[in-house]
Design a protein around this nucleic acid. Structure first.
Lengths: 227, 227
DNA sequence: CTTTAATAGAGAAAATTTTATCGATAAAAC
DNA sequence: GTTTTATCGATAAAATTTTCTCTATTAAAG
């Protein structure tokens, strides 16, 4: 197989568009398409075709003029690039509403994420199972993460407990943290922190809504809702 | 009160940082601080102070040299700017795990979002209440949204049903859609669409993790985890 | 077989976003 | 009261990201 030279550093923007492409590609693959062009992909999202082409460059896949890219190849290469081809075990801390929803989200396995257990200090939750996953007391996290070689921690506790949950994880050897709490977290430089914040997305929505309202009917939706 | 001239168009990046500032500001306000400087805020997030200053410009607040900004004023102006000072009623479609979590998320009211009812076609769910909110059949959405003047729709159905849910909402007069389904959606230009996609955030995390693994211990976390 | 049209890929240009610089100002230190 | 220091606000510069332009390639149409 032929590979193009890949860019050395991949932008966050590109990284965030790749899952979009992937979902689309899986859909068109299920529909039986063998090839897809950047033009087609771009049309779906109202992106620039060149941007799609540049994004796909990072996967190493090469396209064919007049044909496009092999869908199956792209799907695989994007997954590989994102690290979704190999399952990562993860612990979740905070078995509240959001935690439960995350525990029940079956699609995570498609994204290489396997939540193996939940941790919570609420005695009513400890000992129960949520979607088949045990809820354990927080003081067992350190031991278990070391024994089971779990390197990803998901934080779904309230903001005020987020930092202490993270400290616990870091001390337990967790190497990457996916944070759902709306709080700025302090972590050592060698730990990866990624914030999944709903409020950011909501901010864009409500601000647009307000602008539309303020400006009346003219100029509606002038902020293009990309990415 | 004195206002600075505000930038006419606010970037998506700025818009997404504002909630971060807001959460921090509410915290420091609770701690009793009356003033806060951009330098301090920047330090919390590892941002550039100038960037914070530029971001805060959009709120119209003016700071004082050597002192900074009034925390209370900033909090209020950011909320106002984001449209979080006035409650927006919203309908939620899809009372699955994620839908339930969203219905139970009490903080939404802080962000001006008030989910008034849920819709689902599962007969086992219809008629029940989730966190006090009624679950209604989808065919009642159009009528109710018009009668209750609800303009925001939250989509938490599986990807394959997302487009039809959105079509229904658009026909019902919904003006802004917050989409949690991993599917590209087609909507009219005058409807606001904002995608809240977990997978994008997860993509950044897992890719970083893969890179760290690939590159061994050198150069860990070279992609700074900002925003 | 030749022409046409669609697309990839490379590089340049444009736009946007972030970061740096500098003068002004106000509090704190001296 | 003067000097020092921290910060704002404005502008400029740098970096990054997106979009455009052009050439080469390949399938399809004529």
């Amino acid at each position: 197989m032929i590979f193009k030279k890949k860019p050395l550093v991949v932008s966050r923007s590109t990284l965030k568009r790749l899952p979009l492409y992937l979902h689309l590609l899986e859909k068109v693959m299920a529909e039986g398409a063998e090839y897809v062009s950047c033009t087609q992909i771009a049309k779906e999202f109202d992106f620039d075709p060149t941007q799609v082409r540049k994004d796909l460059e990072v996967t190493g896949e090469v396209g064919t003029a007049r044909i496009g890219f092999r869908v199956a190849g792209l799907v695989d290469s994007i997954k590989e690039f994102l690290g979704w081809n190999n399952a990562h075990d993860a612990f979740l801390v905070g078995a509240g509403n959001l935690g439960k929803a995350l525990l029940g989200y079956r699609d995570f396995e498609k994204y290489g994420l396997n939540i193996v257990a939940a941790f919570d200090n609420d005695p009513r939750k400890v000992g129960t199972r949520i979607f088949g996953k045990e809820v354990l007391p927080l003081n067992r996290l350190a031991n278990l993460s070391k024994r089971m070689h779990v390197h990803i921690g998901i934080v779904s506790v309230p903001a005020e407990h987020a930092q202490s949950a993270v400290d616990l994880m870091v001390n337990a050897g967790i190497k990457a943290i996916w944070n759902f709490a709306p709080a700025p977290l302090r972590i050592p430089a060698d730990v990866i922190l990624e914030n999944a914040r709903l409020t950011q997305s909501l901010a864009v929505l409500t601000n647009n809504l307000k602008r539309n309202r303020d400006q009346g009917e003219n100029n509606a939706n002038s902020d293009v809702s990309k990415i």
